[in-house]
Amino acid sequence: MLEIRDLFKTYDNKPLLRGISFSVSKGETICLLGASGSGKSTLLRMVAGLEFPESGLILLNGIDLAQTPPHLRDFGLVFQDYGLFPHLNIFENIAFGLRMRNVPAETIKPRVAEMLDLVNLQGFENRKVTDLSGGEQQRVALARALAPSPRLLMFDEPLGALDKSLKEDLLNQIRAILHKTKIPAIYVTHDQDEAFTIADRILFLHDGEIIRDGTPDEVWTNPKSAWVARMLGMGNVVEGRMQKAEGRMWNVTTDFGSFNVGCKHRHSVGEKVSLLVKQSGEGDELKLKVEDVLFKRDQFEVQTKNGLVIHMKEAPKVGEIIRVKVQIECLA
């Protein structure tokens, strides 16, 4: 459906996006995950036609959108701080897109009611924007974007301004609505929990490039890069140095010993690599000295002298040597 091909963009003379390519198919929700300032929002704005790429193509069903102004693209956009028109009431806000398309008034009314129904705000037509809570405002913004039945929905950190429980609630609603309407969507966020809840596919944006692209399941089991692993809070990402290889098995030295690690990448002797150290029932055994113990609800988080973080059922003493089994993966 939507295809992004090799998009480049600089900001303040620094490259912001360096060759972004991906596609969104019908009914699919993709999630762009990246730190703030990584260019996620700019990417969205370019898809919306509010900014222009320096090079690259944005295609919808194979047709280049470069010459299509934003108001003719038919893409809905939902902002972090809602972007509701303060001088219009809820009805007028939701009806705005329909009015711009010269939809007759008798069609607008039931459509607005339908949208309010969809976002669970029945009877809110005559309320003022300022009378609504943040969560309600965001649902109105969603209804407003949905009302003209856009060909694509874009969310720019839509839940960033809301508190945690409201966030989960609304996230599930958005998910249900996207499934129901089958509108393809691009969801931009820096929150991995949001991304894993809503996305059919997650794209990791880092240093102006998409460094990992896959379903939540794929990404979680195989992050493939140190940055993704850290972004996902997957545990210990450490540095090691490749010593020698035997087929696909490499011998790697780290601060806490040397190990044999299976690796698909091409490496050379002496190369620095990132390793993911996962706690596991079997595998290499490490001896670690306890530096600090933190209580974390159902378990204890143990910080050790080499900087590794281990989770344990029972609290060890500070200074004690503990034995832990880990699996070590190469992240390249």
Binding site: R45, A48, G49, L50, P69, P70, H71, L72, R73, D74, F75, G76, L77, F79, G83, L84, F85, F96, G97, M100, R101, R144, A145, P148
Partner: peptide, 9 residues
């Protein structure tokens, strides 16, 4: 931006 994406020229 919101108005433009909603179809306003």
């Amino acid at each position: 931006a919101a108005a433009r994406s909603l179809g306003a020229d």
